[in-house]
């Protein structure tokens, strides 16, 4: 990651990233927090108490209740691997966007039955009444319609496919 000037530190931080890959989003458990793109930085610092790992995460939505759980899970996973001095900080700016979700993450979402956010967002703007065409994650039809702009979690909307008749979640472009 960025800001790592020292070679040895870089190697160490590189060891942390794969561990974070094992931490899942509690609300969409097929996605790791790396897939989601919410880990902004991993910094290793040598302090008096030994090496400290500082992890910077960014929330998806301001009130997302999963952030607490995710912080706890990161801590537990690192303790499991012997890393005790862990500081997790939240950073709000730049604001999280679904552009930061990995392509692999988007594929996993689709396989899980959740329509992924568009690769190239069509209407991620502030304008009123612009609509997105969402592809059904089951039959790939574009003949879908919005049931509700808000779904089971803050990050999802509810759609229906007019071809296979399935209702499905759409991970909102944000």
């Amino acid at each position: 990651m960025n800001f790592l000037s020292h070679d040895i530190k870089a190697v160490d931080a590189a060891q942390i990233w794969p561990i974070l890959e094992e931490v899942k989003d509690p609300e969409v458990p097929v996605l790791s927090i790396i897939d989601l793109g919410i880990v902004r930085d991993v910094v290793l610092e040598n302090t008096e108490v030994g090496q400290t790992i500082r992890i910077v995460i960014t929330p998806t939505y301001s009130g997302c209740p999963a952030m607490e759980t995710i912080s706890m899970d990161i801590r537990l996973k690192l303790i499991e691997r012997g890393f005790r001095n862990v500081h997790i900080t939240q950073q709000l700016s730049p604001a999280w966007t679904t552009d930061w979700m990995s392509e692999r993450g988007k594929e996993k979402l689709k396989a899980f039955g959740i329509a992924p956010p568009h690769y190239k967002p069509q209407v991620c703007n502030m304008d009123l009444f612009s609509d997105e065409t969402i592809q059904c994650p089951r039959c790939n039809s574009y003949r879908t319609e919005l049931i509700s702009q808000f779904g089971s979690t803050a990050c999802k909307a509810l759609y229906r496919c007019n071809d296979c008749s399935e209702a499905f979640d759409y991970f909102k472009c944000h």
Binding site: Y61, Q91, L92, S93, A95, M126, L128, F129, F150, K172
Partner: peptide, 24 residues
């Protein structure tokens, strides 16, 4: 106040949904 600007930036994306939903 950069922290306040950051909060505003984060919130605006949510506000856009609220406005769209309530306007409809």
């Amino acid at each position: 106040d950069y922290q306040l600007a950051g909060i505003a930036e984060k919130s605006l994306k949510e506000v856009a949904y609220h406005l769209r939903w309530s306007s409809e």
